[in-house]
Amino acid sequence: MDGIVTRETLVKWAPLLVLLVLILFFAVMEPRFISVRNMARIAIASAPALMVAVGVTFIIIMGSIDLSMEGTVSVSAVVFAFAFLAMGGTVLSWAWLALPLALIVGAVIGLINGLVHVRLRIPSFMASLAMGFVGTGFALLLTGGDRIRIEDEVFRGLLTERWFGFPVMCYVALLFLFIAWFIQSRTTLGRNFYAVGGGEELAHASGLNVDRVRVMGFMLAGVFYAVGALLAVGRIGIAETATGNNFMFISITSVVVGGTALWGGIGGVWNTLIGVLIVNVIGNGMVVIGLPGYVQDGVLGLLVITAVVLSTDRKSVSFVK
């Protein structure tokens, strides 16, 4: 990769390029794809997934992995729904307290997740996967397999109220994306994520409490999963054990396709935004131009491989496990 385009530049801008090419492709195949209404539809589909993906981005930057999102999303959604209905069933009553409660639930699950990983010295992959199962099981225990409907017009305003053609939930997601960006680039914690991901031994030797950073990271991720859960409930008006379904696949795929390296230290929340949009543009675009679903899965799989190939400097990796 000599010449004007260096490998770094390519890696940095490839995801955005892919997104633009995809949008152009679908727009040429079907002009209606590019309409504001369809952009809003893609944004609605992306908003909950974006929150979950942003959460896991922090973990992946640290070079760890978190697979607990499905369980965390389900538990947060279900606890929110029960509390919301118990306290009045409308945002205009004390039931609004259910919103911060959901975030606290997310944080607590993240905290337990982090502690299990750090204190018991279980790889994050296994610890979080197990916590995810615990979460799904707990959500099932709470609901007994039932769905809880949230009918409150004010809360459902997340979906039905539109500003400039886009529902409120899209702006909420954008707000939290900025918060995530702020944490990532303007706080010590955010810088520490990169330090741990870039070289854990070095960070440790420099006096950084790596364990504490890890636990904080998992807690923060849990909060973002809970935001994702709230938006998911806002979108379909139902909280159930299945609310968390598919979020693992979508969020990890998005983070990787967006160019955040699984080895840690590279990438960030803007990459994740691009990644989530790529995944959802494909999901929407394939149906819009009338390609069958299995092609969609195949294309996503190829994109993941391409993204990992691009974001990996193979000279620095002596073996792959």
Partner: peptide, 24 residues
């Protein structure tokens, strides 16, 4: 069109949205 939504509420939600774009 007939498209699988995998018995899933959220998937169905997205497929229906895309149908609305495609067929209005």
């Amino acid at each position: 069109a007939a498209e699988p939504a995998d018995w899933d509420t959220q998937k169905a939600n997205q497929v229906m949205s895309a149908f609305l774009t495609r067929f209005g």
